[in-house]
Amino acid sequence: MTWIWANLDLIWDRTLDHVVLSVPAIVLSFIIALPIGWLAHRYRASRGVILTVVGLLYAIPSLPLFIILPIIVGTSTRSPLNLVIALTLYGVALMVRVVADGLASVDLDVRQSASAVGFSTWTEFWQVELPLSGPVLLAGLRVVAVSTVSLATVGAVIGVQSLGSLFTDGFQRGIQAEIIAGIVATVVLALVFDALLVYAGRLLMPWTRSRAATTVTDNAAGSVSTAATPASENRSREIAR
């Protein structure tokens, strides 16, 4: 404990390092995964290829990737950029499948009625499919955020500073408190990100909060989702019968 009180500055600095590594990776992986996931959802031919590739990508252990990647992209092994790219790759690998599943989870009736009332592919994606798959995407993004924060610590063994540096340093110098502080700080950071995402989800998807709170809004997403509820209700009632 005394070590922790004496080194709060150090923990804070490593936390900031950690944020700088993980936030860009989380944001980038979401942005990159959207079009790829859409492709995987939209065409059967691309689906198999894309999902296989991201599956294999995700299977690659982190440390070897951290080592191989700089040789391919030409950064230095110890460069934070190298780590951000690697973390983004993992995030994309996770998120693409989620995007594809999320889009597929949108009720077929809703999609058909959307095209029937005249949405173009583009507007339908942004105003119907994306918002309605929002809850699934959010769940996926939460997993990405938590695992990115956890994974970023591994960079410490190749010399990229993060909260993981507290593990390597603590291990080498035999300071247990330092390692524990690093674990706790990592978990707390992951929980903070998670909470932020949940909060953002509530702001962006007010209709998921509760049925009773749903008010008819002018924006298309809101009205489509209220229209969607009876349909899905019917379906579940059919199953229940």
Binding site: T153, F167, T168, I179, G182, T186, V187
Partner: peptide, 14 residues
């Protein structure tokens, strides 16, 4: 999922 593997590894080893 939030627990960093490296942290757990070094902690147990120590």
């Amino acid at each position: 999922r939030a627990i960093p593997t490296l942290g757990l590894l070094t902690l147990v080893a120590l």
